[in-house]
Design a protein around this nucleic acid. Structure first.
Lengths: 335, 335
DNA sequence: TCTTAGCACTCCCTCGACGAGAGTGCTAAC
DNA sequence: GTTAGCACTCTCGTCGAGGGAGTGCTAAGA
């Protein structure tokens, strides 16, 4: 197995099939190429490596990589100075949107791969305040504040005009009633209320419910991610085929499939690695995904990671992803 | 010149250098290849076409395209049914963000190129209301409503804690003072006030000014654009070189250069076309940009268009861009 | 039993040659 | 002004040869 490790490490460095001669030198053990050849033949029988054709060296298979990352890889934690350097990148920005962006850019910058950060879900979103502002005619601007100061706003077109004082009364009423309550409860109560007294369904309230609904949905459904450094992937010769690259980039912009994948990662709390087609999406054929969840106070908020060729430097990438997740969590916590 | 037109139209179709034989057939005039060769030699002397090598056909130069789009192109307006089809796409969405997105996707969808829409600038942003909400400790959430219901929000960390009633008083004070005023005026007044009475500079006010400043800046500076269909560009063989493609995509995500370019287009009110390196950015070397401004009530809000290879179907693209701009403007107006 | 040297073999890659194909420029004739 | 004819040039695909890298197998050595 020592051989497999040496072979993969070499292949990760060069990107070229590794031959018996080079591997013999790499292992450190003083063995002849012939011996190494025997071992490599065994590895091939086990399905851990393949040779692209008869006289090329060997290349790791997905199974080989899997064994490598699961058992052979000794991950040194990142140098404390490097961690500090990364931490300081977060220092500048305070609001959560830019923190996310910093994390994503950091991931892609440090690893030279594509970085991806799923936006944090806010479970247990709490109602804080609602405000209705008259705009022109029958339009009303609704502003809903939840949680730690997330602001949601929406323009509501009502059936009849409301006077400013009516709007203020409505907002006072709702705010007094619901402040501090869980948004899901708020929505439920509003729905119940409307159904009970449904003969005079108030357009304003109806829309307010819709808005609450949407906020709740957005909070439960983690809905989006942010990606950067996609262009880094163009550097790798294994992704040179224009067709594949196009399919990949389209998946990035359509987001749906990638989101599914990230969703699965969020369940496996901690570091998660998909190698090649393990993900089940064949468009990630020659790609791997390394992710880590980030959390605040034992509650998983989301997941972040990198996408790159299967031939990526796992030894370095894994701790980077891990640390970035921790740093982002820390930055979000104190923000 | 009729020859140039035929040549370019042919080249746009096939993407292959056009030889004398094919061109002879294309023109419709019953001329022999030899005659056509003479003409082509003349066109080459004029700098309108070049041949990639001795025995290939001719390919239009930037100058050739320029002449083509300026003088030779007869643009038929879009079929009324097509316009209706496009219009109906806008019908579904009501808020301005999704309208913009629809426009961008429409552009890329119809032309099979990359569509880009600059976000509308709101000149003369008007102050409507400001609200301060206490969060935990010394944190205050400031919500600023401007214009037709744009909501800006920001978390302010103050030096000392404010009581809820103090915050309400502050927001009432500001709202009463500034409602309906131009944001630029608001900012100026706030700055003046602070300087006059600067011994007891109020942290809260200071941050409010900063926020106002930022809103004003964002309103003046058209700050962003939305792009879609970038992957369409991967289809064209003239953009096959990975290096160029990477540079292009990086420019798309960094946005700075593209924004500069769009800025220039916004000035030339109406349709604007940059062919190849006319833009001055060599990374758009083999690309053309076709844009149109969109406006509401004689005020230019922004610009939209498509980016594609110089060898794009101008005859079709130009009316599409034109119509999309009008439709977007109409949709924004009635929204 | 493990290791190693030797050897024949396979496959890729590069290079040069070659011919086909496409297109040109030029000249001379209509 | 237009055209046919012709020699020329350049690209591109194919083919075969040679080198290089690497393999599998066998037989001998520790």
């Amino acid at each position: 197995m020592h051989f497999l490790k040496a072979l993969i490490e070499r292949y990760i460095r060069d990107g070229q099939p590794v031959g018996s001669r080079t591997l013999a030198k790499d292992t450190g053990l003083d063995l002849s190429p012939a011996t190494v050849r025997n071992v490599m033949a065994d590895l091939e029988d086990l399905g851990l490596v393949v040779s692209p054709h008869t006289s090329a060296g060997r290349v790791p298979t997905v199974l080989g990589y899997r064994l490598f990352v699961d058992s052979l890889l000794t991950i040194r934690p990142l140098d404390e100075r490097d961690v500090d350097a990364l931490r300081s990148e977060f220092a500048g920005s305070s609001d959560s949107a830019t923190l996310i962006e910093t994390a994503s850019r950091m991931l892609s910058g440090v690893t030279h791969l594509a970085g991806v950060v799923m936006l944090p879900r806010h479970e247990r979103e709490v109602f804080r305040q609602i405000e209705f502002l008259p705009l022109s005619g029958t339009k009303v601007l609704a502003i809903l504040v939840t949680g730690e100061g997330e602001v949601h706003n929406r323009i509501i077109v009502t059936e009849r005009a409301y006077s400013p004082s009516q709007l203020i009364r409505a907002s006072n009423f709702l705010t007094e009633l619901f402040t501090g309550r869980d948004m899901r409860e708020v929505r439920q109560r509003l729905v119940d209320d409307l159904q009970r007294t449904h003969r005079h369904v108030d357009q304003l309230m109806l829309r307010a419910v819709e808005m609450a609904q949407r906020v709740v949905a957005a909070a439960e459904h983690k809905d989006d991610y942010l990606m950067s450094g996609q262009t880094n992937l163009m550097e790798f010769n294994e992704l040179t085929s224009m067709d594949r690259l196009k399919a990949l980039f389209q998946a990035f912009t359509e987001k749906r499939e990638i989101l599914h994948l990230l969703d699965r990662c969020i369940e496996a709390d901690g570091i998660q690695i998909f190698i090649g087609d393990e993900s089940g999406y064949e468009l990630l054929g020659d790609c791997s995904l390394v992710t880590a969840t980030y959390r605040v106070e034992d509650e998983v908020l989301g997941v972040l990671g990198v996408i790159g060729p299967t031939r990526m430097d796992y030894q370095r990438v894994i701790p980077v992803v891990d640390v970035t997740a921790r740093l982002l969590a820390a930055a979000l916590r104190q923000q």
